[in-house]
Design a protein around this nucleic acid. Structure first.
Length: 257
RNA sequence: AUUUUCGGA
């Protein structure tokens, strides 16, 4: 059961929902973990009714992972009301992950006041709760509130930093994004592919882009993806260096998008 | 072995 479940999870993680389903359907036995894995797989693919079928008719018992996975299925499908109902129907005590999933459901629907209410009401908050709240304010463009949340965080990880850096970069505050990036490095956090998507977009010259690009690959071992090239091309376009931009498009090891 | 937070799809 364990090895089959692992295979289901691996297929799901690589987006091969059909293969995951095939393995799950042909398993000799299933337990709560394998069912949870399949519910999560359907959730990620936006297949709510299939997730519900497993949740309601295949599984005899539910644990907190089952409930949280099902809640996420509704969120992914844009069903906020159903997500709320499921959250209310969950047996207490609800795990922190369920609270976090519910906060995310409100974030996806831009209901920031409900997010804040849940965040304040939950019995205990972890780093993910803080990051979810931060992402809510960042995504809705409420930079002031985002900064306030960030400042109040006692612990920050790469996700937290990525969220604020992206918030600044996306709102045209490139300088602030770069400053936050430097603070991130000073704090000893490890930048990843997502960090650099914002950092490269926040650059304002070819020299700056080039220096961050080589530091990305050389110092931090982050592989360049097409999005990184797109950011640099965007910088070149914004500075009017169209010749260089075209040259980079031809030079980059990706099909242009 | 499974669920919650950041970019992209």
């Amino acid at each position: 059961v364990v090895s089959s479940t692992t295979i289901v999870a691996l297929y799901a993680a690589s987006g091969q929902l059909e293969a995951a389903k095939l393995v799950f359907d042909t398993m000799a036995q299933r337990n709560i973990v394998s069912c949870n894995t399949m519910v999560a797989a359907y959730a990620a693919g936006g297949h709510v009714s299939d997730a519900e079928r497993i949740f309601h008719t295949v599984m005899p018992l539910h644990d907190s992972v089952s409930w949280t996975a099902m809640l996420t299925a509704h969120t992914e499908a844009g069903q906020l009301e159903e997500a709320k109902n499921l959250f209310d129907a969950m047996p207490a005590p609800r795990c922190v992950q369920a609270w976090n999933a519910m906060i995310t459901a409100f974030v996806d629907n831009m209901e920031l006041s409900s997010c804040q209410f849940l965040f304040d009401a939950m019995p205990a908050r972890d780093l993910v709760s803080w990051n979810a709240m931060l992402a809510g304010y960042a995504r809705s463009g409420r930079l002031g509130s985002a900064k306030r949340v960030f400042a109040r965080m006692l612990e920050r990880d790469t996700v937290s930093w990525n969220t604020v850096i992206a918030a600044f970069a996306d709102s045209g505050h490139g300088q602030d994004a770069m400053l936050m990036f430097l603070r991130m490095l000073v704090d000893g956090l490890v930048p990843n592919q997502i960090t650099y998507t914002s950092v490269l977009a926040a650059c304002c010259s070819w020299d700056e882009s080039r220096s961050h690009f080589s530091s990305m690959v050389g110092d931090h071992g982050v592989g360049a993806v097409r999005a990184h090239y797109s950011c640099v091309i965007g910088v070149l376009a914004s500075t009017g260096e169209l010749g260089k931009a075209w040259e980079l498009i031809e030079f980059m090891p990706f099909v242009p998008d």
